[in-house]
């Protein structure tokens, strides 16, 4: 610290750059702790703010997790049951076996599974009520079926594949619900946009909440701010504690959002798994992984700092000692 000696203090104090940098970083380190401690001194108010931010952050994230799982490739079978290729020939016949071979060899096809007439019969009769119906037949009326899971993702490509398979020897007909698939992907597209809009809106809400909370704090600290400026505190010196408060509000809000998300996923996991099993799928809502959690915390902190910046800067500039 380079002070002007009082005796010859005939010049305005100058502090060299290195000392200023040291003081600057000391102030930051000190504020990092002290602002959190100050906030924790009012746990009720803090918790409410964190909760509001946490809910605002968790809603769009939960929706996006659900959407991601639904549209993800390996879970598509949940809503895109494999094509069923009904055979016009017995499944042991050479024609059927050749068809099976060529499907297995095809690059457009992922999984291929043969359900023989007997297997189809057993599955069908295990469904309540149908056993009696089948007993009315003297022989097995069901055809063999080849279940085909296409590699193709989009509706038009799958349709093309279905037509191509339908034209082959030994195939009676191919069934899959093309219209439903197209409708679904359209809905997913809309949902994705809605989600982006929600994300922007809720981020705005977080920024607004933090900005507003900080404004109230500033109003309560008016006297302190005026005195600080009177003794030579610069605008950024005065603003710094509010930036750190914003950081903690956003970061804590993200922490709460994390807890809300994980709790919601746990709460939903049972029903979702049951639903998935009914589709013979391993669809499951997955929790946030490590990287995503870090991302969430960073997002919260960033929104907090942003909220502080946009709302506090001009406001603090206006407060001047009189």
């Amino acid at each position: 610290m380079n002070e002007s000696a009082s005796g010859s203090g005939a010049h305005i104090r100058q502090i060299n750059r290195a000392d200023r940098l040291k003081a600057w970083s000391r102030h930051h380190r000190q504020l990092f702790r002290s602002t959190l401690i100050t906030l924790l001194n009012q746990p009720g108010a803090l918790l409410i703010t964190w909760l509001v931010i946490g809910i605002a952050l968790s809603l769009p994230i939960l929706l996006s997790l659900a959407l991601r799982e639904i549209s993800e490739a390996d879970t598509r079978q949940v809503i895109q049951p494999a094509m069923s290729v009904y055979l016009s020939v017995p499944s042991e016949s050479e024609t059927a076996q050749a068809l099976l071979q060529s499907l297995r060899a095809s690059s457009a096809v992922g999984e291929v599974r043969l359900i023989t007439e007997q297997a189809a019969l057993m599955e069908f009769s295990s469904l309540a009520g149908f056993g009696d119906v089948l007993n009315a037949f003297s022989e097995n009326p069901l055809p063999g079926i080849i279940e085909v899971v296409p590699n193709e993702r989009d509706g038009a490509g799958i349709k093309l594949l279905a037509q191509q398979i339908a034209g082959q020897d030994g195939v009676d007909q191919v069934s899959f619900d093309a219209a439903w698939l197209e409708r679904l992907s359209a809905i997913l597209g809309i949902l994705e946009r809605v989600l982006y809009a929600l994300g922007v809106l809720f981020s705005g809400a977080v920024i607004f909440t933090i900005g507003n909370t900080l404004r109230l704090t500033i109003e309560n600290q008016r006297a302190e701010i005026e005195i600080t400026k009177l003794f030579g505190g610069s605008d950024s010196f005065v603003q710094r504690p509010f930036i750190y408060r914003g950081f903690w509000l956003g970061f804590g809000g993200a922490l709460l959002a994390f807890l809300i998300i994980q709790a919601s996923l746990m709460y939903l996991s049972g029903p979702v798994e049951r639903l998935a099993q009914s589709y013979r799928s391993n669809f499951a809502l997955e929790a946030l992984d490590f990287g995503e959690s870090i991302g969430l915390f960073a997002l919260g902190a960033l929104l907090g700092i942003l909220g502080s910046w946009v709302s506090v800067w001009r406001y603090l500039k206006q407060i001047q000692p009189k």
């Binding site: 610290m1 000392d19 040291k22 003081a23 600057w24 000391r26 600080t228």
Partner: peptide, 9 residues
């Protein structure tokens, strides 16, 4: 306060 503003240790 004035010492904090001056960045003293």
């Amino acid at each position: 306060l004035p010492l904090l503003i001056a960045g003293m240790k």
